[in-house]
Nucleic acid binder design. Structure first.
Ligand SMILES: [Mn+2]
Ligand SMILES: [Mn+2]
Ligand SMILES: [Zn+2]
Ligand SMILES: [Zn+2]
Lengths: 140, 140
DNA sequence: CCCTTATTGATAGTATTTTTCAATAAGGAT
DNA sequence: ATCCTTATTGAAAAATACTATCAATAAGGG
């Protein structure tokens, strides 16, 4: 089920603004702030308002169609999300990101955490930082 | 090496503001926003300005004396950090957090990520969400 | 093609974060 | 203890970021 089906099947409309945002975020590996999304789309001729960027980011987040990434400096940005459970890795140099879905088995770790903290563990937020292929060449 | 030694040995001063902030954050399990830190300290009689909260959070983050946590809703807050490599778990209900240092061995996962994404993997940001002991009782 | 209403853009309002700068206090030297 | 240097501070203002309101628009079912 692609993003249009996901939204439509939940009673949401496939609007210009949403198509433009999804297209941009799918094409971009670097996490973009709401402002950056807005600027990029205006430059491409879109008449979208910044307010709609915020509104739609909220909606798209609700349906896991975009993901919020946290840069090493603590700044947040948005990228198109993968399907199903997945995580992202972010280049420390150029901020470019990639998705990985070869996901870990945390059952053992979770047991340790529950023993140590007395919390019941639910889900998690995991993000890696590293060097993208391009920046590996530049910064040998 | 405690936080005072860490700062002092790097040429920073142990100020009222920093002592108040570290004391508050060490006593509190719930991640606090800059504004919340400021309000709490003012209520305790501190004359500290909000600006110093921001400035000192930056400094304390630089020396890993406080950690930024991301709530499930995307909001960020600060808590006192543990020593060495560690992570946090956050209660989905009351936001209370705990530290765990029984840390994972990610070497196998990292190999998979590097194979799949062609990135070179460095460090990571990992945070768990769950139910704290108190909220387990309330929400049986 | 029409009708309903979710969605939008503009505007205004609120909240958060950063910049600037003179006053203060931390801590090494005397 | 007292002095000196300057990192640090608080207040004020500026700049950003986000949210609420509302009339106009366009998405999409009939
Ligand atoms: Mn995972
Ligand atoms: Mn770890
Ligand atoms: Zn890169
Ligand atoms: Zn709780």
């Amino acid at each position: 089920m692609n993003w249009k089906e996901k939204l439509a099947s939940n009673g949401h409309r496939i609007t210009q603004a949403r198509e433009q945002m999804m297209r941009l975020l799918s094409q971009t590996q670097v996490p973009l702030s709401p402002m950056q999304i807005h600027s990029a789309l205006r430059e491409q001729g879109s008449k979208m308002g910044l307010v709609s960027v915020y509104r739609n980011l909220n909606l798209l987040m609700d349906y896991d169609l975009v993901c919020m990434l946290v840069a090493p400096d603590g700044n947040a940005g948005y990228v198109a999300g993968g399907t199903g459970h997945h995580h992202h890795i972010l280049c420390k140099v150029c901020q470019s990101s990639a998705i990985f879905d070869e996901c870990e088995d945390f059952s053992e770790l979770i047991s340790k955490i529950e023993a140590q903290t007395q919390f019941v563990v639910g889900d998690h937020f995991l993000q890696f930082y590293g060097l993208c292929p391009q920046c590996q060449e530049t910064y040998v």
